[in-house]
C-alpha cells in the first residue's frame, strides 16, 4: 500500500515540480534584467508651496512606478506599461521610442537604477511639480542579441509631474547636461 502511494506521489510530484520550475524560470525570464528602481526623494527645497508628507509619499511611489514601467516598455518594446504613469509629451516621446525600437529591432535595458530626486518647484495650487532627478543606471542597447552600447551613466532629468485622478503622472521628462 505504501509503495502504491509512493509511486502515485512520485508520479504526480515530479511533473508538478517540473511545471513549477518552468513557470518560475519563465517568470524570472519575463522579469528580465533587475527591475529594482531605487529612488531617494528630497522635497524640502520645493516652493512656493510646501510638499505635504502624503504628497511626497505618493510622488515617490508614482515616480518609482513610472521608471519601472519605462524600463519594461523599453526592454520589451511594449506600449502597455506607458498607459497610466505618463501623459502628454512624456508619453508621446516614450511611445515613439518604443515604436522606433520595434521597427529597427532594437531594445534598451535600464538596470541598477539609483535616482536622487529633488523637488525644485511646487506650484501654489499644487497642480504641477518640477523635479530634478540625478539618475545613475546601467544602460545597454541591443540590436537583436547583439550589444551595441553598454555604459554605466549618470543622467540628469528635468521632470514635470501633475496630479491625475488617483496618482501623480509624468508629463515631461527631459534629460539635460546639467541642472
Amino acid at each position: 500500500m505504501i509503495g502504491y502511494i509512493k509511486s502515485h506521489v512520485v508520479r504526480w510530484v515530479v511533473p508538478l515540480a517540473a511545471v513549477m520550475t518552468v513557470l518560475l524560470l519563465g517568470s524570472y525570464d519575463l522579469r528580465g534584467a533587475d527591475p529594482t528602481v531605487q529612488v531617494r526623494f528630497d522635497a524640502s527645497k520645493a516652493g512656493p508651496r510646501v510638499v505635504e508628507s502624503l504628497t511626497e509619499e505618493r510622488i515617490l511611489r508614482d515616480y518609482r512606478f513610472a521608471w519601472t514601467s519605462l524600463t519594461q516598455a523599453m526592454e520589451y518594446n511594449t506600449l502597455d506599461p506607458l498607459e497610466g504613469p505618463f501623459v502628454g509629451t512624456a508619453k508621446q516621446w516614450l511611445a515613439q521610442t518604443v515604436v522606433s525600437q520595434r521597427q529597427t529591432g532594437l531594445r534598451s535595458q535600464y538596470t541598477q537604477q539609483n535616482h536622487t530626486l529633488e523637488a525644485v518647484f511646487y506650484a501654489p495650487e499644487g497642480d504641477v511639480i518640477e523635479l530634478h532627478d540625478t539618475a545613475e543606471y546601467h544602460l545597454q542597447v541591443l540590436d537583436g542579441d547583439k550589444e551595441i552600447h553598454n555604459e554605466q551613466v549618470i543622467v540628469r532629468y528635468v521632470v514635470l509631474m501633475t496630479p491625475a485622478a488617483d496618482r501623480w503622472v509624468i508629463r515631461q521628462m527631459q534629460a539635460v547636461p546639467q541642472f
Partner: peptide, 30 residues
C-alpha cells in the same frame, strides 16, 4: 545607431565620412 527621446534608428554609413542627422530626428530635447 541613434537612440534618444522619441527616436531609435539605424542606417548604413561609410566610415570616414560626415554623417548628416536630419532635423526630424532631433526634435526632442534630451
Amino acid at each position: 545607431y541613434l537612440v534618444g527621446p522619441g527616436v531609435a534608428s539605424k542606417r548604413e554609413i561609410s566610415l570616414g565620412e560626415d554623417i548628416h542627422l536630419p532635423s526630424r530626428e532631433l526634435q526632442n530635447a534630451g
